[in-house]
Design a protein around this nucleic acid. Structure first.
Lengths: 199, 199
DNA sequence: AACATCGTGATACGTTCGTACCATAAAGAG
DNA sequence: CTCTTTATGGTACGAACGTATCACGATGTT
């Protein structure tokens, strides 16, 4: 049976199984055996490719972040070539809203991880803790660029508004996730604020 | 030894021990034995006052929500008698920001619970899921009241802004919690938006 | 052809967790 | 002064979980 196999592909398969289980039952409730069953492999295999649960977790998180990045760039590309700053901002913020199954999973698992990182310093030390920071800097740059192009209303503070938009979309995303609000309503609120910033 | 004892007081003690452990090690990691040790009682006692872990959890969550309510009203009272709508809104939103140990605990545990409720319908069915809804309605009412009093800038949509302020403070709170931002910076951003709404 | 390595399965071990059970001392009721 | 109820301690049980161990067939190398 054992042919030579692509380890990276295998790891990806297992990581996606992990994410599916996490989306269904919650990140706290996923065990090695669940992941193995979901991936259709034996427990031993999961152990073989990821020696420990923590490594599996971290790989899964990285994979999730990667998929989210692809999602954002896909959305930007879908906005045509050389889209304006507003379209790019809309692509970024819109990708983070839990609209379909994938973005719901992203939001849920990422929030779970963020909560865990507060009390677990091994997780907090991980590189993707600072991913929100990167998003913030990108947003500031986009707003500044729009400002220089005369696209913004006068008196807009790029830094404050970047922070606000990010916090807003995170908060709106959570309210959608728990079923308090429809995705469309959340998108509408975001749009309202972009209208407020842009001419 | 066994004198007649106030059960409600006992339950409160144990619930606060639960919250302390949850703040320190994360809600997912709290066990009955941890709570018992933290409260300085035997495991059996925790079982005696709360028959099951789920009941303990729910009681703890209710207790947390109650303490938060007291915190808000205390802040409102501290703003003088008959404070204006803006002061009341500031009191509400400011209480939710993780500034001291108690509000950090509140934010962390409440977020943990929200995450859990996405994948656990027993939790999702609980009454305090709709607490954000109540806060939203209160905010809308305050903004409408301010509008009628001519305190708002023209063209402000009370409903949209109420949703925005709530989502904003939730998002800002989380970023403070994970150490991305200082509490003062978050408060500053909130203030900036209140300045935007009020004359 | 012989052999070391890789991929995979089955299963066992030690721990932790929630819960259940048994015992018993103190306190109020009659 | 008995007797039932209340409050509390100690401990045991069964399940689940992460991890480790043993075994073995297939593959590539020399």
């Amino acid at each position: 049976m054992p042919r030579r196999v692509d380890h990276e592909e295998r790891r990806t398969d297992i990581a996606e199984a992990l994410l599916r289980v996490a989306a269904r039952r919650g990140l706290h409730a996923v065990g090695m055996r669940d992941v193995a069953a979901e991936a259709g492999v034996s427990l031993r295999l999961v152990q073989y490719y990821f020696e420990t649960k923590e490594k599996l977790l971290l790989y899964g998180l990285r994979h999730l972040a990667g998929r989210f990045g692809e999602r954002v760039t896909a959305r930007i590309r879908a906005a045509g070539d050389d889209p304006g700053p507003r379209a790019m901002i809309e692509a970024m913020l819109g990708a983070a809203l839990p609209t379909d199954e994938e973005s719901r999973t992203f939001h849920l698992v990422y929030t779970s991880y963020a909560v865990l990182s507060v009390t677990d310093r091994a997780l907090a030390a991980q590189p993707f803790v600072k991913e929100p920071d990167a998003a913030e800097q990108a947003l500031v740059a986009l707003l500044r660029q729009a400002e220089e192009g005369g696209l913004l209303r006068p008196g807009v503070d790029a830094e404050v508004e970047a922070v606000s938009l990010l916090a807003l979309s995170a908060g709106l995303g959570s309210s959608v996730l728990v079923g308090q609000r429809a995705p469309e309503a959340a998108a509408g609120v975001l749009d309202h604020h972009l209208d407020r910033l842009f001419r």
